[in-house]
Design a protein around this nucleic acid. Sequence first.
DNA 1: GGCACCGGCCAC
DNA 2: AAACGTGGCCGGTGCC
Length: 583
Amino acid sequence: MSTTPCVLIENETALEAAAREIAVHPTIGLDTETTGLDPLCSRVRLIQFAIPGKNLVMDLFKVRALSNPEIRRVLESSETVKVLHNAKFDVKMLLCHFNIELRGIFDTLLASQLIGAGRIDIGHGLAAVADRHLSQEVDKSAQASDWSGALTQAQYEYAAKDAELMLPLRETLAVQIDELRLNEVAKLEFECVLPIAAMELAGMAIDAACWRNLATEVGRAHEILSIELKHELAPGIEQPSLFGEPEINLDSPAQILDALARMGINVEGTRSWQLQPLAAEHPAVAKLIEYRAIQKAVTSYGLPLLEHINPLTGRLHPDFRQIGATGGRMSCSDPNLQQVPNTPEYRSCFRAPAGRKLVIADYSQIEIRILADWSQDTSLVKALLSGEDLHRVTASQMFGVKLEEVSKEQRAAAKQLNYGIMYGLGAPGLAARVNCPLSEAEEMLRKYFSTYSGMAAWLNEAADRAVRDRENRTRSGRLIHFDFDPQDRTQVAAVQRLGKNSPIQGSCADIIKRALALLHDALKALDAKIVNCIHDEIVVEAAEAEADRCSTIVEHEMITAAREFISSIPVSVDTVISDAWLK
DNA sequence: GGCACCGGCCAC
DNA sequence: AAACGTGGCCGGTGCC
C-alpha cells in the first residue's frame, strides 16, 4: 500500500513548477490515459509522471501540458530515461497529437520479454510483470473506464499508480538485464520503439478500388470452382440430394477426407503437399488444391482487408508486435502486411498516393551472410566475397563442375540447400523439394556439408549448445531459451533445429531493427516515412522529387546497420523505386 | 455467443 | 537421421 502523494496539475502555474521539478530527475515513470485505443481516433486525457516520492498527473483537458517547452524537452531528450510499459502505445499518442518524439525509453514490456527469452509459460502484461518481479498486485479495474468526461479523485489516483510502478519495476528489470548481459539488445529494442510507432502511424496506402476489383474477380472464380469441386466430389458424397447441389462443406477437412475416402482415395490429410502426388491421377484432388488456394485468397485477402482501412487516413495501420517471435522477429496483425501474397495482382494494389513513390529495399541473402560471418567457413566466405551467383558457386563446388557448366537442376538443388540449411533441412525434406530419390538427396547433403565443412561444424555446435545450455544468443546478445524434455527424442531434435535456426533468424531481426532506428533518424531531413517492414525488407514512402535521395539513404542506413553485426562479409541491399509495392 | 483448438495456407 | 524455422488469418469444430 503506497502513500506516495499524487499531485493533480490543472493550471499553468502548477504546470511550470511541475516541469521544473520533473526536469531534474534522470529517470521518470510515464503513462498516459486516452479516450480510446486507436491513436488516430482518440484523445490523450491524462499524462502521468512519476518521480521518486511523488506522482504528478496532468489533465490535458484543463492544461496544455504538452505545449510546455520544458516538458517537451524532457520527453524528447535521450538523456532522461522515461520508463513505460508498452511504450509504443504512448509514443503513438504523443506523436499523433503533439508531434512529440519520445526518446530515452525504457520499456518494461520489452525488458520483460527479453529477460523471459521466449519462455512460453509467462505473460508480459503489466499485471503479470509486476507480480513476477515486484510481487505486487496491480489493480487494472479502472483502466477501461471512461476517460473523456469529468474524472473522480479515485480515477486520477488510479492513473498515477501505473506510472509510479514503473520506477521500482525498472530497478529490478535493469539489474536482471545487466546480469543476463542483455544491455546491448535492450538498447537496440528501446531505440526501435519510436520508429515502429511512427511506421504504424504512417500506415500503408492501398488503392481500395483496385483491391475491391481484385476481390470480386477472385470471388467469382471461387464460386465457379466450388461448383466444379462439388461436382467432382459428388460420387463420394453419401446422400446427394436429387435437386440442387450435393451437400458437403468444402471448407471442412473432415468432410473432404470422408468424401475422398468414399471415392477410394485414401490420404493422411488434405494439405496441398499431401494431395499433390495424387493430383495427376484424380481430377477431384487437382480441383481441391485449386479450390484451397482460391478459398484462402477470398477469406484472407479479399474484402475483409478493406475493413482495416482507417476512415481518417484512408490507409492501413497494422499492429506490429516488436518482439513477436522468440528469436526477436517482429510479427504483424490487423492486417498482417507481412503476408500479402507476393504476386503482382495483390502487390500492385499497394500504390503510393499521387506525387509519391515507394522505395522498396531488401537485404540480399542476409541469413546466409550472417551464417558465413559467424562460422567463417572458408568456402562460403570465399564464395560470397567473389560476388558471383552464390547458388551457382555452391553447385559448382558440390558437383565438381565448372561455373559455366552448372545445370539448372544443380543450381536449384544448391539454392534449396543454401536457403533450407538454416532451418535444419534434412534429406527427406530436400528430396521432396527437388523431387528426387532419398538416396540422391542424402548424397547431395553430404556433398554440401563437405563443401561447407566449417558451416556444418558451426551448425552442429549451435545445435549441441542449444541442447546442453538450453539457450542460445543472437549477434546482439538476445537470449533464446529452450524448454524441452531431454528424454524425448523428437523434442531434442526440434531443439537442435531451433539451435541452428534461431541465432541466424534472430540476428537478422537484430539487423533490421537497427536499420529501422538509423533510418528513422536519417529520413527526418526528407519528406519520407517508413511504411512497412517484412523481416529483411523495408518499404518507405517518399515524395517523388526526393525518391532518389531517399533510396540512397535507405540503402546506406541498411548497410550500415548490417555492418554493425557482420564485419567480414559484404552486405548488399536491393532497392527499387516504384509506384506500387512491386520489384 | 465466446473461446480454444486444429487443419490449412500465406509471408519471409 | 521418420518430420526445415518464425509468424497470422480463416473456417470448422467442440466446449462451456
